[in-house]
Design a protein around this nucleic acid. Sequence first.
DNA 1: AAAAGCTGCAACCGCTCTGCG
DNA 2: CCGCAGAGCGGTTGCAGCTTT
Length: 571
Amino acid sequence: MVLTCWWGFVHDYKEMSHTKNEREDVMFSKDQTESPLVDDDNCGGGAGGGVVLKKGPWTSAEDAILIDYVKKHGEGNWNAVQKHSGLLRCGKSCRLRWANHLRPNLKKGAFTQEEEQLIIELHAKMGNKWARMASHLPGRTDNEIKNYWNTRIKRRQRAGLPLYPPEVCLQAKQESHSSSAVNGGDRGPHDILQNNSYEIPDVIFDSLKANQSVLPYVPELPDLSASSMLMKGLGSSPYCGFISPTIHRQKRLRESTAFFPSYTGAVKSEGPLFEQFQDDMLDKAARSFELPFPIEPDPTAKNSQSFGVFLGSHAISNGNFSASEPTLEAVKLELPSLQYPETELGNWGTLSCPPPLLENVDAFIQSPPPTSGVESDSLLPRNSGLLDALLHEAKTLSSAKNHASDKSSNSSTPGDIAESSNFNICETDRENCGEPLSPVGHSATSLFSECISASGSSLDGQPPIETFTESHVKSEPADLVLTPEIQKETPIQLDSNCPDNLFASNWLDQGSGFDKDQTIMTDAIASLLGDDLSSEYKNMAAATSISSQAWGLGSCAWNNMPAVCQMPELP
DNA sequence: AAAAGCTGCAACCGCTCTGCG
DNA sequence: CCGCAGAGCGGTTGCAGCTTT
């Protein structure tokens, strides 16, 4: 029968297919009669001629019929399939099935690192042109790429990471510039890149200005003006960097807690349980959010003011909060996550040489108070390994700093994907492109640095934080490869020079109007965190930036921004 | 162990583009 | 130039399997 010859034809396909197909093999006869049927009107064409066509998952027999048809008649004229083969599928469905699953030479399985890199680069250049991207990836379908990308978006969104590594941004942007000059300004990936790395802050600041009142959660930002392109080009929130309000509460809770290990891992691992820190952090955050502006002048005061849902860390961890409690969400949004996508980091980290990458993180290592220096892993008895990697990277960074005299020269070459941090990209990008800054990286990072520096007191008197148990860290095995050698590395020596104004000053020079917002946010965050916590925040920044292979740091700061922006503007 | 939630993939839907009469 | 049909594309949805609680 047809099924027999089909088997060999799509042998590879069957090997890679899900068990669902195998089930369908068994259920074939049943499917033929009981599967949902639908009129062909939905398929656009009139090929069915009123015949009720089948929808839903394809059965093996249907695949066989389609394959047989294509072998006889070739591809195309899909609406004729139903006529000639009797297959009760509309042409559209046939084309899709063939293109995505049945045609020969289809690659199945996970994308290779090369493919992933290519996809990212192509997306940076093309945007959501899946079919065009697929043409660059032999054996891959547009649908596959699209799914991959959407998954990637979700992951990065959850992790608060930018979609593109710096060099991809820069490269695509440059190419876009040149191509737009030729093509007359064809809006392409550049927009998306802007959205990704440059325009977002505009959204933030615009929305900050626009929202004079407290908007703890802003599912839809008001007129985004210049940044409206963001939504336009990207369709929806995934690109925005905001954690979607629709994300399930539990999920966000999980992710918010996932951040803490990295944080605590970056600081001294002694003292009270992290839970206490969490309580403290949340307490302060909640207090700051609840209080009307101006914020309490003494942020370090640990008053016992009730703050509604913020009743302690357990309230967070046990998921008792309603997702409709915006304040909590806002606070949680502020917390960088260490849940970096397993593929991206590993991918970008391995695609180019990791060491140079670290030197660019240098600028973000905030000066820790003398007592808060990161200890060696010997002091991290419950180090999950991820922390070790952080320490190692930080150490590498420290040593690399000695050689990093000229950061501006880091304008990356288009292949060195992982060689510069997110900050560096923005810096580089601005320098190279010389365009009015719209700075995701910048504004976000500036803000981040700013919020750190604004509350410059140390951790003196602040009990060190105890590290987490491994169980707190969501496992992302591919994020960091930890070798024994790495684990033996000496502790980080965090740079005590605060590059806070490194980016912010540029902003101000650009007349971006950021100064006002910056001040607001600085004050807000300083008040939010309090002196001691802000110091810890520094360490958090360092740890987070390192762990994210640097280029994600901007988004860590970025990830912090929504909550900040949701705060009311000072009167 | 069971239930709930999350993730990723396959397929569908609706729109746009293109070719043709 | 207009309308139609086919083809293609991008966004969205549904579901099965996996993970977490």
